Amino acid sequence: MNTDRLPLFCGTALAERIERVEAQLIAKGSEAARGRRADTAGFVIPLAGGVASFAEEGSPLNKVVGLGFGGVPSAAALDEVERAFRACGSPVQIELAHLADPAIGALLTERGYRLASFENVLGQTLGGGRECVTPTGVEVRPSDDDEFEPWLDVVAEGFAHPDAQGVPSHEEFPREVIARAVRDLTAAAGVMRCVALRDGVIAGGASFRMAEGVAQLTGAATAPAHRRRGVQTALLSARLAHAAAAGCDVAVITTQPGSKSQENAQRQGFDLLYARAILVKQP
């Protein structure tokens, strides 16, 4: 890694772009979930530059994202969102970037929101001619629809056995809920999947999405038996090479603070851009 490289600076303009494509991702996945369901539960409500989303019970898409760069939401707008979540029996979870308008944090605190956790957003500048680097014995290739179940198996196994480093996540999701969310995101939001094979055996899986020049690395996992063999590095390198060739100028990844994922990302040239506070209000 080039020690003379300048860290990627994230001002409010870049943060706004990243948060906007995150809101698009969640909204498209939530809309796909509602289209799949027979009932009419669920919603996507625009909110001050972001969106409030409820896809289905227990879904990781049930949250407010992208808030903070389109003005301070009005009390009436927040009332509407809180009523919608309450009608679904769900808490309101807001992911608020620390580069967002600081008045929003004060407003949410006054309305009874409590700080539940943090997550970090890291980024890396992309340029043309990026090479895909894979260690001996590891192959990374696109994962087709007929390979979804084996891909999901290895991703779910990896998430079920996280590295015991850093701050643990405040939430967990059953395998079937993750599967439905991934299917919805793939179908509606343009999320692409890739698989890593080690000596011919599926060892890991990952996904990513490209929008507005931003490559969103939306998840990666390695089966415990194949860890520390370069699988995660190979999955990351392949996605970055694809995104750079497609014209993206920045790649972003979200991690738990102090986690092995964050450590690996920073070793691969990612810089910490900003944190998101996870604020929750119970129904």
Rank of each mutant, 00 (worst) to 15 (best):
D4G: 06
P7R: 04
A15V: 10
A23N: 00
Q24T: 11
I26V: 15
A27Y: 07
A27K: 07
P46W: 06
G50R: 06
A52E: 04
G58F: 10
G68N: 10
F69Q: 02
S74T: 12
V81H: 03
P91A: 05
Q93G: 06
L96I: 02
E110I: 00
R111C: 03
L115P: 03
A116N: 12
A116C: 13
A116K: 14
E119T: 14
E119D: 14
G123R: 05
E131R: 15
W151Q: 01
L152G: 00
L152C: 00
V154A: 01
H161Y: 09
P168W: 09
V177G: 03
I178H: 05
A179C: 11
V182L: 11
D184W: 05
M192C: 13
A196G: 11
V201E: 15
A203N: 12
G205K: 01
S207C: 13
F208K: 02
M210C: 14
E212H: 11
T222C: 09
T233N: 06
S237A: 04
A238P: 00
H242Q: 13
D249F: 11
I253E: 03
I253K: 01
S261V: 05
Q262G: 11
E263Y: 13
R267S: 10
D271N: 12
A275F: 12
R276Q: 12
V280R: 15
Q282K: 08
